[in-house]
Design a protein around this nucleic acid. Structure first.
Lengths: 217, 217
DNA sequence: CTTTTTTGTTGACAGTGTTAATTTAACAGT
DNA sequence: ACTGTTAAATTAACACTGTCAACAAAAAAG
């Protein structure tokens, strides 16, 4: 029994070793394109087919890498929040940290969102789903905190509100990272108005059901 | 001269033929993964290396396909706008059409944004860049129209404003298409508050420089 | 008609993901 | 210690892929 347990640990350690190698290849060899079983195995010092004992698929391996990336961006957000006290400040810090992290590490961001080999979310490993939920949870928690303290309006479900922030942040990073902002419009011009808009409109109680927008005059 | 022009047309026609074959493979064989030179060439009835006379790269071929996709989503937006008169109605119709198109054709949307083999935008074909600009231009033009008619505030550059809309719409579609909305939050819950927010806050003149958001109370 | 340029074909190379067969190593039971 | 059993790791092989070089066919230019 104890024996069995130990071999499980060893197994997990080996898996982690392979993941380390994969991460190293990913970071140093130029992103996702460089991550092949043969490449990773070579870096880990094992034969090219050995990783199949630890990952069913290439997608399985990539999912594990994705999970790491989500944990990383989660920690970036938490780090940026640490010095802030109010929910408003936390929310802004978190959002800016997300964008900064994504923009400054485009390879990781690409890994997280731009490789949907199989859209089959059911195949998403529990590991990845958990990491993703935890990352989004950072935002959701701050919004809950703000609503409970009365700093934010509660006319929106915290989950919906955090999804809205995520949508904005992801749209920003995604378009920037894939080089879509052209014609003299930079991401720096967009960050402020976007988050300002999201904060004021979503977290304030006014205008919560004005479906048609009146022209100003 | 006329002779020369005609052979150019023939060449362009062949190129279009190959693109048609590529599009067919893309649509019927399961998206981007199925588009290989060999596959496309087989569908076009030529040998597997012949497309190299018309496309320098696989990326070159994909760029041409991407251009078609952008033209398509542009026409979808214009179609949806046709019945609308006011700039406000046009803007809403355009935004919804963009989201609907993207969500209902995830393969095409993936093609447009999720395959940045080379982030080198300089290599983006003129064809693609033009198609992209035209698609975004639909939104920019409506905003200009709204600003000129006084329906929208002009405190934002129309280009920046349209980029903001694009950011929101793309964030929405991108997250939806890659299956990120989980835990009981659907895209339908997000569309209305997001666009309502963008419209009212960005296109109204109030709150244009309230950098810190006051707590409501 | 000859020469040159443009198209299309085939063969080849270096990779890839993945599976099957096979060897190596570590454990359990007697 | 010698089994038998099970897991781990390796190698060979298959069916692909993008890409290029060598070559044949055809068309255009002179």
């Amino acid at each position: 029994m104890a024996r069995k347990k130990q071999t499980d640990d060893q197994r997990a350690a080996r898996r982690e070793e392979i993941l380390d190698a994969a991460m190293h290849v990913f970071e140093t060899q130029g992103g996702i394109a460089a991550v092949s079983f043969r490449n990773v195995a070579a870096k880990a010092g094992i034969s090219y087919s050995a990783p199949y004992r630890y990952f069913t698929d290439k997608d399985d391996l990539l999912n594990a890498l994705r999970a790491r990336a989500f944990r990383w961006i989660e920690s970036e957000m938490k780090q940026a929040m640490k010095s802030k006290r109010s929910a408003t400040a936390k929310l802004e810090a978190l959002a800016r940290a997300y964008v900064t992290a994504g923009v400054s590490c485009p390879d990781r961001y690409e890994l997280m969102f731009f490789e949907l080999d199989n859209t089959d979310i059911a195949r998403n490993s529990l590991e990845l789903r958990a990491a993703k939920n935890d990352a989004l949870g950072v935002c959701t928690d701050v919004i809950i905190e703000g609503q409970e303290s009365g700093a934010f309006s509660d006319h929106l479900d915290p989950l919906v509100a955090s999804h809205l922030f995520w949508t904005g942040a992801h749209g920003l990073v995604s378009l920037e990272v894939s080089g879509q902002f052209v014609m003299g419009c930079t991401i720096d011009q967009l960050i402020a108005p976007l988050f300002q808009t999201l904060q004021s409109q979503i977290l304030n109680s006014e205008n919560q059901d004005s479906h048609t927008i009146a022209a100003n005059g």
